[in-house]
Design a protein around this nucleic acid. Sequence first.
DNA 1: ATTAATTTAGTTGCGCACAATTAAATAGTG
DNA 2: CACTATTTAATTGTGCGCAACTAAATTAAT
Lengths: 139, 139
Amino acid sequence: MNKLALSNQLCFSVYAVSRHITSLYRSILEELDITYPQYLVMLIMWEQSEVTVKQLGEQLYLDSGTLTPLLKRLEQKELIIRERSKTDERSVIVTLTELGRSKREHAKCIPENIFKALNISPEEYYSIKNQLDSILKNK
Amino acid sequence: MNKLALSNQLCFSVYAVSRHITSLYRSILEELDITYPQYLVMLIMWEQSEVTVKQLGEQLYLDSGTLTPLLKRLEQKELIIRERSKTDERSVIVTLTELGRSKREHAKCIPENIFKALNISPEEYYSIKNQLDSILKNK
DNA sequence: ATTAATTTAGTTGCGCACAATTAAATAGTG
DNA sequence: CACTATTTAATTGTGCGCAACTAAATTAAT
């Protein structure tokens, strides 16, 4: 087998599926007027009311070079507030606005819609997820 | 189960693994002085000596907005040549330079190195690949 | 043959990703 | 306490990714 062939590479499949998923989210998130990376931040905010940029970065595997401008855009949309910690001014604490909190209701149906669009069984869904997560654990 | 939790979403796993893989390639491809998307183009060129931008786009699921500047960078590195088709001047035909062709040898070990870095079994590798490819087929 | 529709790349603009650097605040050490 | 090291965000620069639009060439239809 030719390992230098696109069709034989897992990496390309991951890359292609990742962009495919982002495009599925693009149409679904249009209504919320946010992008997929912004949605990921909102997912965290809906679970944890107060998070630093560092903590967001740890959970999303993203650095401040990506997060700082992204968070500024979410702030402009008035979904979040960014403010320096009073106790440690190196940290920036992110909290939800009332508007941001209210968006959670509109987002509830998104996972189900994405799942339907993927067009796979629940078994496949969790099988793929577990195997990918094991790659992340090994890194 | 809370479907609005990051940890329960296949999509985030795909997104995270995709970026992880790109970062693995980044260090390996440093030697060839190309990026991962540029490497994907080179993979195709090494198999097919003459390809149009449209054909590259079909195989990589990328449009001209991404490919045109990427191909210009590969041309600046003198790995490829871009020229309008004589028979249909709407098309741009991409071919390898001698330098570009010669890089194939240096790239031969890359798939094996990436596989080792992923730290999974061949069975897992092909299992994940097949399941992801079925998602792409369903789209 | 003329006009209309389609195909193909290129351009522009925006939002990630991420490396590398900078700046400020805090923690650690003698 | 001084001063060094570490932590944390922000900034800068490069390269995707993709939507929307433009321009040019080709094809189809009348």
